[in-house]
Computed example of a mutant assay.
Amino acid sequence: MSGDRAVGAQDATSPEEDGVENGLSEESAAPGRSTGRRKLWWPAALAASLALCLGVPALVASGTSASGTVSATPATDSPEAGFARDMAVHHQQAVDLSFIVRDRTADVPVRNLAFDIINTQANQRGMMMGWLDQWGLTQSSQAKPMAWMKMDHAYQPHDGSLMPGMATKADLDKLRGLSGRDAEIWYLQLMLEHHKGGVAMAQGYVDVAVNESEKRLAQSMVVGQTSEIQLITDMLAERGAKPAS
């Protein structure tokens, strides 16, 4: 398909409705680099309205820069900004994976899981993009993924993935080439690792968070994705399969 359009929760509410182009979006491919593919785009006003509806204030009280200085809004090198950018990319790939499997299986439980992930993570992604816009910060940066976690060294992927749990291009290509039960199992295996990485990232932000609104969102990610990890593990067992690792 061609052209850009906003994608929200309604795009994934019915198995009969078409979503965005399956596959990696612009953000999933690489932060700050255009690939010519469509992406999920949320105007700041829409994201702010969603945040208020969910009871999460769209405005922030303070943030912390790399030097530890507290400011009125988060600095571009703060954990608040870094987490929002990185988790937005991480969420985008979960949405992409879920749209791919939607068209490759008729299995109701798997499709329901995919729709839940699309709705939840597209909404959360919109909130984070809205915050960055309100803070006057860019939605991508030259910083290495996970640099905001202030580890002794930046995240160094060994398999070509951008961040913990993210699927590689080869993983996505494999999913596109499968159908039926094989697609279900591979999707569940990929999402299991994806959620594990997402939980680790969200908890990493919770541990250093200054912004209470973003911290609450990250905590909800930890709780929600931890629950889905058990669900996905059970779904794999029901299909006679095990986690990929």
Rank of each mutant, 00 (worst) to 15 (best):
H153C: 05
S71M: 14
S78Y: 02
G160I: 02
Q124T: 05
R85I: 13
A81E: 09
A88Q: 10
P109E: 01
H90S: 09
V56H: 04
S78L: 10
V89S: 06
D103N: 13
A44K: 14
M129D: 08
N112P: 03
Q121D: 03
D159E: 05
A45Y: 05
W135M: 07
Q92H: 14
M127V: 15
S49P: 03
Q156S: 12
D159N: 12
G82C: 12
D103C: 07
Q139N: 09
G160Q: 00
L46V: 07
A44N: 05
G165W: 08
T76G: 06
S141K: 00
A58C: 01
A122P: 03
D133H: 10
V89N: 06
A58F: 14
A72S: 15
Q142P: 00
V89R: 15
R125Q: 11
D107T: 09
N123T: 10
I100S: 09
F115G: 09
D96E: 14
L97Q: 14
S140K: 00
Q142K: 02
D103Q: 12
S71E: 15
V108A: 11
V56R: 01
F83E: 05
D107S: 14
L46G: 10
G136D: 03
V70D: 13
P57A: 11
V89F: 08
D103K: 13
L97F: 07
H90K: 11
G160C: 02
M151Y: 01
K144N: 08
D133P: 04
Q121N: 02
S78R: 06
L113N: 06
V89W: 08
P79S: 10
Q139Y: 01
T120C: 01
G126I: 00
R85N: 10
T120V: 09
F99M: 15
K144I: 09
P79V: 12
E80M: 09
V60E: 15
A84N: 04
A94I: 12
T69S: 15
A81M: 10
L50G: 04
D152R: 07
M163S: 08
V101N: 03
A106T: 11
T64D: 05
Q142Y: 03
A47H: 04
A154R: 04
L162R: 08
D77M: 10
L113S: 04
A75N: 12
H90L: 06
M151A: 13
P109F: 00
L54C: 11
Q134D: 13
Y155S: 00
S161P: 00
G126R: 02
I117F: 08
A58I: 04
M129S: 07
I118T: 04
M128E: 02
P157R: 04
A45T: 06
S141L: 02
K150F: 00
T120Y: 03
G126F: 00
A114H: 03
V60K: 00
P43A: 02
A66C: 11
G165R: 07
S67I: 12
P57C: 15
P74Y: 06
T120R: 04
S65P: 08
Q93N: 11
F83L: 10
M87N: 14
E80C: 14
N119T: 07
A106N: 11
P157D: 03
A94S: 15
A88E: 04
S71L: 15
P109D: 03
A106L: 11
G160Y: 04
L132F: 06
I100D: 14
S98R: 06
D152E: 09
C53A: 13
L162E: 03
E80G: 09
M149V: 12
K144W: 07
Q156M: 10
M129W: 07
V89D: 06
S49A: 13
A45G: 07
N123P: 00
